[in-house]
Design a binder for these strands. Structure first.
Lengths: 270, 270
DNA sequence: ATTCTCATTCCGTATTATGCAAAGTATTTT
DNA sequence: AAAATACTTTGCATAATACGGAATGAGAAT
């Protein structure tokens, strides 16, 4: 266990009273999670700033535990089934998300629309529940899908109701991508100011909507379930084909808003 | 790093070429995830069969990484926000359909039967993959074929493992058609109650089968790959000429059930 | 006030993680 | 087709680091 060089610098990511090798291992795991896709050993090792041989040993243990798996063909490493189990266990302990998920069928019954529940993850808002109504149309959107921030109703709720620090990196990334593709957002200027006024507008309305921008022919409205700080713990979205639902006073918007208000922690009055 | 006692027994959970301390750490993490609630240090240490002092050091590192958090008041340990993030990253990459498709040749090799993979589409269960065994005979079913809901093993899995709202319209349509044609289903009464008891029976058995009803002379068994909500992501079907495979304890049924269980997302237990 | 239990820190020991080097594999180039 | 290249995996000697047990500190219950 040589701590060969620069031991002072490593103090940063060294947990007081912890296990150094575990710190290194978790750094590796986080790099893999953040990357959003399967990685080769060398890529991973470079990302975590450690020699490949060291990374390989850690990965062997992760693979044995099922937290990471190695794709047969490519030899690349990716998150494994146990990582999912772990995350779902964590999710199951978040009370407000649980309550919302349990109540979701009621909302679907009331509105007759397909509802989805998303929470914030490294890759953006991630769909964790998917309650389908009679009219099925989208099958490309599955559990675990990550939605765009600027381009989806769900994402816009995140922009408006999460700390800027959380969303900033991803907003930046999407703005650059949109600029280079010359995408036209009819209702959005691609500047930090434009984003801020979008967020203000969403907060003023209490919900966000898109109509055929993310998926042509599809309309969606979304609203947040808030914690006591006023931040979104999860986002509820209703999807349909009729753009009429996006009207501020539509029955669907009312139902959604009431639903989310009922599940949010009471906000301290002004 | 004493491996003080009983080194023979530890060989079981020791990853070849891996890091021993990481193995122990992950065992700890799994115990915490399995418990489903916050635990005290000693509880956790006992569950993972290690001295509390060792567990504490590991937990310090986990806490520093955000994978575990310690409740201020009680001092108990629970899964932290990073565990959720990790799981969401894993969820985003879990493409059960693709994984199943990749594994299909293995099932075919094991059972020697032709397998097909279907997903739910607008028109009902749709065949998306064919994996032919040595003895090829069926050619009437092509890629993209949609199967009947009531009359095929594949369809019956959809009835049992998809939300009623999704299948209702098509079930209705098939029932009407069957009634007007005066089709006889030996094992099914064409009422909503009859459908429900069919679904219950399929769920209880874990698989569905038909023998010569859909295509005379052909027997099939089918089982679902489930997401963590318990809904079917896709359906795997084995086809053969021998009706013996439809017996609940046949080798084929066992292989199919094990196959699908392995690909389904673990349901988070209590 | 006292006695538990439980969480945390300290310390010497030797077990085990480490880096380097070499073998083994897959993939691409000449 | 053969060589070269890049990448992954294993072996080995070294000493750095994780280990266990005891001691200390914090809280709750009697």
């Amino acid at each position: 266990m040589k701590n060969s060089s620069a031991s002072e610098f490593e103090a940063t990511d060294r947990a007081a009273g912890g296990i150094q090798s575990l710190d290194a291992a978790l750094k590796l795991l986080k790099c893999l999670a953040k990357s959003g896709q399967a990685m080769t050993l060398t890529e991973l090792a470079r990302a975590a700033a450690m020699p490949p041989t060291k990374a390989h040993r850690y990965l062997s243990s992760f693979v044995a535990a099922g937290l990471v798996e190695q794709r047969e063909r490519s030899g690349r490493y990716d998150l494994g089934p146990e990582a999912l189990t772990l995350g779902l266990s964590a999710l199951a302990r978040t009370d407000s998300v649980n309550r919302t998920a349990d109540a979701l069928p009621g909302l679907v019954g009331e509105t007759g629309m397909t509802a989805l529940l998303s929470v914030w993850g490294d890759q953006g808002p991630t769909v964790v529940r998917w309650e389908r109504a009679a009219s099925v149309f989208v099958t490309s959107l599955g559990l675990g899908t990550t939605l765009p921030l600027l381009n989806s109703a769900t994402g816009r709720i995140c922009v408006a109701y999460l700390p800027e620090a959380v969303t900033a990196a991803r907003i930046d990334q999407e703005m650059r991508a949109a600029r280079s593709r010359r995408d036209a957002f009819c209702d959005l200027t691609l500047t930090s100011g434009g984003i801020r006024s979008l967020a203000d507008a969403v907060r003023a309305a209490g919900f966000a909507s898109v109509d055929g921008r993310f998926i042509p022919g599809l309309a969606a409205i979304a609203a947040p379930v808030l914690d006591w700080q006023g931040y979104a713990v999860c986002v509820v979205t209703l999807i349909g084909t009729d753009a009429a639902i996006t009207a501020p006073e539509s029955a669907e918007v009312r139902a959604l808003a009431a639903f989310c208000r009922g599940l949010s922690t009471e906000q301290p009055g002004p």
